[in-house]
Design a protein around this nucleic acid. Sequence first.
DNA 1: ATGTAC
Length: 373
Amino acid sequence: MGNSHQGGVAHAATVSKFYSQTAWIEGRAEDQLTHVSNWPGMKHIAAFPDLHPGRHGPVGAAFLADRLYPQLIGPDIGCGMALFALDLSPRRLKLDKAARRLRVLQEPLPEDLVQDALVANGLARPDGLGTIGGGNHFCEVLEVTASEAGSPIAKGALCLLVHTGSRGHGARVYNAVDEPWKEGFDPGSAAALDYRELHDAAQHWANVNRLLIAERAAEALSSDAALICDAPHNHLEEVDGLWLHRKGAAAPDHGLAPLAGSREAPSFLLKVRETATPDALWSVSHGAGRKYDRASMHGRIKLNRSGLAAMERTAQGGRVICENRDLMIEEAGAAYKDVTSVAADLEDAGLAARIATLKPRITFKCTRKEGQS
DNA sequence: ATGTAC
């Protein structure tokens, strides 16, 4: 664990794996790791215990190269997890009422507020600003059930975890990248400079989006949200003249990063030891990581006659608002790895320590739209 | 992951 070793091919990047022998890692994810390690200019890769297969390379890894690879970042540029403290006590949180109120997150942000946000933050386009989007994105209310020394949130407090990114804005940037780009971009090329400028703007857009969603959710709950940390996990960063690509690997914010579990498992706040482990490329896991791909989940989850309703309440008594049947199945707790094992591997590797345990109470994913099942 | 088109 954590030991660096050369790949089998000349000039391949070094790969550091921060997971134990018993970690759930698909062979295909490790094959992708080896494949990317042979890309031109790839120097070093850090792979984390949430590693799983992705479209152009594994998710749950950080890649350091002397070239730029937009496909390693993907369309959701700037996607990340932001954690907020809520000014609201668990006793005052009425789950069903609060869940109903959070449904406002499905609505577009009112146009006047969009315009205000664009001006205040120097953003170019609305592109769905203030909404969380689909896939694995969510806005969740959690209760702090354990808190260690150094934690900014106390046991018994409520917090808000927002997982979203740059929506249509980053997707447009990504989809506009001229192919072919399999060899990556020379960092000095016009294409690279263009991508970097648009990427940085999309990352900022995503950052603002998480803050706006937290404000909307807090207002719906008649509370206030105070930012604890906002850790992006899909982005490009220059490090000593090289290019660090994070794909589902979190960049800690002031040494903190949320580690998302699932609707059936806790999440954790991690204190990250950023300087101790350059082999980890100043990154950690951002969540449990997918155990089963979306398609295969439909054969694994059998909804009974009560259908979605059975999944709208978790075993822990939490509420889930996800009125898209397919998404509910694809995002079931069973689709994710054991987050406690992921956290233990990060701790054993000396990368991070859990300083707070967060139990999901209400997860907002989506309400029903016309035409959806 | 997205918006749009089928």
